[in-house]
């Protein structure tokens, strides 16, 4: 087995906690005899080149589950959805998919963050909550949160994502449970809600959110990176160090590559390593 395309793959229809999905995964595992399998998250458009990626032999030898994040379709930053390469036996033993033991610093494709208004709000909310927790005392996470909450106006349902992210990082705001009420908002009210909440977040000392115009949002998306952010590279390198002498070599190579791409040394861990939702 040389590349991801050599392994049997299964697309997960919904969330990993969904019992029906787990049943389907088990049926898939029953039908394969390979030691390793690839699980693809819902709404991830896997780039063809991903199937040519060679998993690192050292990591496979240690039996570690490897997660290849997809980039967020609205922000170009890494999402918590992607492709997971894991051992069949590990899934069977856990009765569920394992958490990502190594987050690989390469995008597997694009995750559609806004396939519908409800899903855009929901994914924005979850992301906002997660990033807000990371941002406490972490300047880099705070900057990313400001950016992510400001991006989306170029997309049909992008304002719902923005409202979701902003709601996720503020107490007392609407949650996905309130969707039936939110769904009645017309476009003008939605945009006003985004602006008002962005102002509140700024005034309360939160991230410096500045909702971008459609033109600016599209430009920033185009100018974004084809690579996961530096924290993903650093996090991967840190994990490699734990794998002994060869791991330390691998860590040095990835650290240097990450610093060539990002040319910075911001100490920040967290992005890309959160539980997949």
């Amino acid at each position: 087995m040389t590349c991801l395309g050599d392994f049997p793959a299964c697309r997960i229809a919904g969330g990993r906690e969904d019992a029906e999905n787990l049943q389907e995964i088990l049926v898939f595992l029953d039908a394969t005899e390979e030691d390793w399998v690839v699980m693809i998250d819902e709404a991830v458009d896997v780039a063809p080149r991903t199937w040519a990626l060679p998993p690192e032999p050292l990591i496979c030898a240690r039996g570690l589950a490897q997660f290849y994040p997809a980039s967020n379709s609205l922000t170009s930053l890494e999402s918590s959805n992607g492709v997971l390469l894991c051992q069949r036996e590990q899934v069977l033993a856990l009765g569920n998919l394992p958490g990502p033991e190594m987050v690989m610093p390469v995008f597997c494709g694009i995750w559609d963050a806004a396939p519908s208004p409800e899903r855009a709000f929901d994914s924005g909310f979850r992301h906002g909550q997660m990033r807000h927790a990371e941002a406490a005392g972490c300047e880099t996470a705070m900057r990313y949160l400001a950016f992510e909450a400001s991006m989306g106006a170029h997309h049909q349902f992008g304002a719902w994502w923005m409202l979701g992210v902003l709601s996720g990082c503020c107490d007392g705001q609407a949650t996905p449970a309130d969707w039936e009420t939110l769904a009645d908002l017309d476009a003008a009210s939605l945009n006003r809600a985004v602006r008002d909440l962005a102002r509140r977040v700024r005034m309360e000392g939160g991230p410096p959110v500045a909702p971008l115009s459609p033109e600016a949002s599209q430009w920033a998306l185009n100018a974004g990176s084809n690579w996961p952010s530096l924290p993903v590279w650093e996090g991967f390198a840190d994990r490699c160090v734990e794998l002994g002498e060869e791991g330390a070599r691998l860590a040095a190579a990835y650290r240097a590559a990450g610093r060539r791409i990002w040319a910075a040394r911001a100490p920040y861990a967290g992005a890309g390593s959160e539980a997949r939702g």
Binding site: Y144, F147, A210, A263
Partner: peptide, 17 residues
């Protein structure tokens, strides 16, 4: 881009080297 948009993108540090 307006000034606040330009500032946000630059300060977010999301553009690779």
């Amino acid at each position: 881009l307006g000034p606040s948009e330009s500032r946000l993108i630059v300060e977010s540090d999301v553009m690779p080297a």
